[in-house]
Amino acid sequence: MVGTFYKVRYKGPGGNQVEESGFLTQDEAIDRLTNTYKAKKASPANRARSERIEKCGQMRLREYTALWRAGQRHLAAASLSHLDSLLQHHVFPALATRRMSAFDHNVVDGFIRTMERNGVGLAAQSNAYDKLKSILLDAVRSGTPGGDRRWQGSESGLCSGQSPRQPSRHGTCNGTIGDPPAR
């Protein structure tokens, strides 16, 4: 077979698709892809992200929240006081010792159900949920929960602008964190 060459396609460093051709055998093409993959995995950015995921994924919610709270410089003193109160009275008693890599929609749903069972008012449920959502979304954006996307849907399963007992205002978040359970 004269003139038959193998092509390989992969994502380049900038995220663009790269195509290379001219490989005489399939083994040469596979070797090229393997070398490209190894070089990409060894890059400093991927190593730093992997280290951050491993470090933060093993953190407890209380530890991660302390880091997250330090970054909330835009909050006024009264807002920080309200945040601390929500964390101490609602979020930490239920979730403080849970590892960040162990969160999923079932954990958050269980948190909401526990608040309901304990007779927490709807406003406090909504506020506590919103703060937990903010913390978890920050963790997802930084790649923390195991580096995967276990929360599906908009913004990794947490519907923006949605409280525990409010239906989705956007109509796109069916069955994700924040939707009331079907009864």
Rank of each mutant, 00 (worst) to 15 (best):
Q26M: 13
G110T: 04
R32T: 00
L86I: 11
G22E: 00
L61M: 02
I112Q: 05
H89G: 11
E28W: 00
T25Q: 00
R98L: 07
H82V: 10
E54W: 05
E116R: 15
V18G: 02
T97R: 09
T25V: 00
A48P: 06
R52N: 09
K40G: 10
M100G: 02
R52V: 07
G57T: 09
H89D: 13
L87E: 05
G71K: 12
A48R: 09
H82C: 07
P13S: 08
M59Q: 15
G15E: 03
S81I: 13
R73T: 14
H74C: 05
Q17L: 14
E54F: 09
C56W: 15
H82N: 12
Q72F: 04
T36W: 02
N35C: 05
L24M: 10
R69K: 13
C56Y: 15
R49A: 14
R49N: 08
Q72E: 10
D104S: 03
N106R: 04
L33W: 01
S85I: 10
A29G: 00
F103Q: 02
L83P: 06
N106Q: 07
S81Q: 14
A42E: 07
A29P: 00
Q17K: 10
M100S: 02
A66D: 12
L86P: 02
V91L: 07
Y64P: 03
H105P: 01
F23R: 00
L95H: 00
S21M: 03
F111M: 04
H82I: 08
N46G: 09
R47M: 06
L67T: 11
K38D: 08
V18R: 11
I53F: 02
E116I: 13
I112E: 07
M115F: 03
A29H: 00
K38F: 03
Q88C: 05
A70G: 13
L87K: 02
V108S: 04
E20K: 09
T114Q: 14
G57W: 03
A77F: 10
W68K: 06
D109R: 06
A94P: 03
L87H: 04
E63I: 12
A39C: 04
G12M: 01
L87R: 03
A39W: 00
S85F: 11
A66P: 10
H90R: 07
A78N: 11
Y37N: 12
A70M: 14
S43W: 00
E19G: 07
F103R: 04
A42F: 04
A78M: 07
R49H: 12
A45S: 13
M115V: 08
R73C: 06
Q58A: 15
H82S: 14
H89K: 12
H89E: 13
A76D: 06
A70Y: 10
K38Q: 08
A96K: 12
G57N: 09
L67I: 08
H89S: 14
M59I: 06
K11I: 15
A29I: 00
E51A: 14
D31G: 03
T36L: 08
A48F: 03
